[in-house]
């Protein structure tokens, strides 16, 4: 039966696709983890800026020098960074979910192929017994 060989080959292809998606998800997770750490650090800074007096002197390090920035400007900079990080994380999460859906679909297809193989094998066995 050439059928089984062909189906198994197709199955192997699907399994490879599945594993590739799995690896991509791992990569996405790592990236998201780093961004979350950055988000937390920026949230801590936001919290510190919030409890400062209005006339507090704030500096931003730019390379080797400290540049004076107004407190509202500093707050705006941190806010902007938080928004950017959050949207980046959301984007990664969305891609992660898409990969999950694709994985589920592949799994179903692989299951179907396995059933087909089992059915063909059963038929072969039956016809073998009849002979």
């Amino acid at each position: 039966m050439a059928d089984i060989g062909a189906i198994e080959q197709r199955g192997q292809g699907l399994i490879k696709q599945f594993e590739a998606l799995d690896a991509e998800q791992g990569q996405l997770n790592k990236q998201a983890e780093q961004l979350r750490a950055q988000l937390m650090e920026n949230q801590a800074v936001e919290g510190e800026l919030k409890i400062l007096d209005e006339d507090a002197e704030v500096f931003k390090s730019m390379g080797p020098v400290l540049v004076k920035v107004d407190l509202p400007d500093a707050k705006a900079m941190v806010k902007q960074r938080l928004d950017r990080l959050q949207s980046e994380i959301d984007r990664l999460d969305k891609t992660f979910k898409e990969k999950e859906t694709a994985k589920n679909k592949l799994q179903q297809e692989i299951g179907k192929l396995q059933q087909e193989v089992a059915q063909i094998q059963q038929k072969q066995q039956q016809s073998g017994e009849e002979e």
């Binding site: 920026n42 801590a44 800074v45 510190e48 002197e57 704030v58 500096f59 931003k60 390090s61 400290l66």
Partner: peptide, 13 residues
Amino acid sequence: VTVEIGTGFFVKR
């Protein structure tokens, strides 16, 4: 003193 509060921000306190 001027203290770092993270992500490159410093505050004189």
